[in-house]
Computed example of a mutant assay.
Amino acid sequence: MKIRKIYLSLLSVALLWLSACENDEYDGLTDPDPIPSAAITFPQSVESNGVARIEDNAYIIKQNSIAAGQISVQIKVPEGRTIQELTRVTGQRFKNGTPVAPNFSPALPSGATAAANQVPNAAISRNSAGNLPNTITGAPGNMVTYTISTTDFPAVLTDAEMPTVAVGDVIRLFFRVRVDNTEQEQRAIEVRVYITG
């Protein structure tokens, strides 16, 4: 009888503990940003080993954008899901120095020279207001393309210290996507386009 009471007590404690372990990624208080209802991926970030390059919670895309005349980012959701629109695009450009293969991981400037090496000068986050057009091609569809012309570069990504796009620059983008026919936008996802030429 005593063993049964101990067993039931331990079982009750375990159930209480498990019920307290909720997914608090979205609790309405500490992180009110919507959790993605569909997996959003960026096919261009996939390396030769078939795995997407993700560092610092950002997808990394290496791209020969100057020669192509544009920065191009493909955004994809699984088959059967549909990207309706980009509700917000926030961008920033920063200098990353000379890349040393195989490490192309772009790191944000910091310290006293940060402002001179990024545009806009203040660092952005996933909650920053949109500052770029949100026009895409291919919507509605399960894969769309977002482009920025490098010959007619957006004014918000240039200043006196960084007037033109150069090799080694990184275009940091936060995309908010509306999937299917819901009104809810997905949590902002960061992409860093590393300009290789």
Rank of each mutant, 00 (worst) to 15 (best):
V177D: 00
Q74M: 10
S149K: 08
F104K: 01
P133Q: 05
N181L: 12
L157N: 01
A166V: 13
G111F: 12
L132Y: 03
Q84W: 04
A67L: 10
S125P: 06
G168C: 06
A115V: 07
T145V: 12
V100A: 13
G130H: 09
A101W: 08
S72Y: 02
F153V: 04
N127D: 14
T182F: 10
R81L: 07
A107F: 09
T82D: 03
Q92V: 08
M162A: 06
T98R: 10
V100Y: 10
G111N: 13
F175R: 01
L173D: 01
D159N: 15
G80I: 11
N96E: 05
S149I: 07
L132A: 07
P133H: 08
N134Q: 11
I136H: 00
A101R: 11
N117P: 09
F104Y: 15
A101V: 10
I75R: 00
M162I: 15
D152E: 14
N117Q: 14
S72W: 04
S72Q: 13
A116K: 03
A160G: 03
A116F: 07
A101H: 12
T90L: 13
P109S: 08
P133D: 10
V73F: 05
I71E: 01
L132M: 12
I148P: 02
T150Y: 09
S125N: 14
I83C: 04
N96R: 05
Q92H: 04
V167E: 13
L132H: 04
P140Q: 04
Q92P: 02
V156H: 05
A112R: 05
S105V: 14
I71A: 01
G69V: 08
K76Q: 15
E161A: 15
T147K: 12
T158K: 15
A116M: 10
N127W: 11
M162N: 12
I136M: 01
N127H: 12
T90W: 02
R93I: 13
G97Q: 11
V77K: 00
A122Q: 12
T90F: 10
G141P: 03
